[in-house]
Computed example of a mutant assay.
Amino acid sequence: MSSTAEAIVKPAGTPPAVDLREEFETSGVREVLAELDRDLIGLAPVKKRIRETAALLLVERARKSMGLAQETPTLHMSFTGNPGTGKTTVALRMADLLHRLGYIRKGHLVSVTRDDLVGQYIGHTAPKTKEVLKRAMGGVLFIDEAYYLYRPENERDYGQEAIEILLQVMENQRDDLVVILAGYSERMDRFFQSNPGFRSRIAHHIDFPDYTDEELLKIAETMLAHQHYVLDEEALTVMRDYIAKRRGQPHFANARSIRNALDRARLRQANRLFETSKGPLDATALSTISAEDIMASRVFSIAAKAARAEQ
């Protein structure tokens, strides 16, 4: 036995060894990761980081069971990326993962923004922030667009008070609460530069890439399938064109924009069926989105207008 191994003395009563593969199966981690793969299209680098984090937490739990670790690892996280890239969904899965591994008591997710934490007058912020923290204890607190907490240009802003309370709880009660800060990458970078206390408490930084056009098309088909709708062949082609054009227009929000587009397409489909049907409609007619239901979108007229302006 090496001198290093001889120096590691385990407390009496600890297990002689731990089967990590068995822990992976029995803890439910495999199930959570499988759900992540099944429910989220693309996001390969994000899924890789979640698997790596799960492996780390499994090992840390095993080490603790053998008396080799005393403190809970720092689990606070930062999720950065554009809107509609799955940050909230991954946060939900992370809460489930942490609960199954015993790192949080409840496994619930409390999602908030600045308005839920910061008050409008003196004495209002502390009670609001503490109430949110009370609801989140034992689970995960997800703060979307966290950089809006910090507004140095406004001398009468109370965001700094919420930040100080959050930092204190993140440090002193990290055994009972995990905080995930989320938002645009560049704005989050500036936020961390202005608030080093947050950066020092964040252990895991995960960047969420934009979806590709093909991934968004698959997301569209999946969203419709969940509601028992389909795109006909021509509509599929038009939807692909829609995605390419919509990406280049303002306020594009990845999967969120696709969901909004499909909601409007279903509205047009319903109106088309109501106005044109002359008799009973079968399930296929009621469940099929046609090209015209998508082509009516302003995205196409805006793109055409922009193309004419360039000529």
Rank of each mutant, 00 (worst) to 15 (best):
M1T: 09
M1L: 12
S3V: 10
S3W: 09
I8Q: 15
I8Y: 09
I8F: 12
A12Y: 06
F24Q: 03
G28W: 04
E35Q: 10
R38K: 15
D39F: 12
L40Q: 06
L40E: 06
I41P: 00
G67L: 02
L68Y: 04
L68E: 08
A69Y: 10
T74W: 13
F79T: 01
K87G: 02
A91N: 02
L98D: 05
I104R: 02
K106A: 15
G107F: 07
L109V: 09
G119C: 07
Y121C: 00
T129Q: 05
V132S: 04
D144P: 07
E145I: 10
A146M: 07
P152N: 05
D157A: 07
E164R: 09
I165E: 05
V169S: 01
E171Y: 08
N172H: 12
N172F: 14
N172I: 05
Q173D: 15
R174P: 06
E186M: 07
R187Y: 13
R201T: 08
F208Y: 11
P209W: 04
D213C: 13
E214Y: 03
L216Q: 02
K218M: 15
L224E: 01
Q227N: 14
L231N: 00
R240D: 12
A244C: 14
K245M: 09
R247S: 01
P250Q: 08
P250S: 08
H251K: 15
H251Q: 15
R259N: 13
Q269R: 08
A270N: 07
N271Q: 14
R272Q: 04
L273N: 05
T276L: 13
G279C: 13
G279D: 10
L286P: 00
S290G: 10
A291M: 06
D293N: 10
S297T: 06
R298S: 14
F300C: 09
K305P: 04
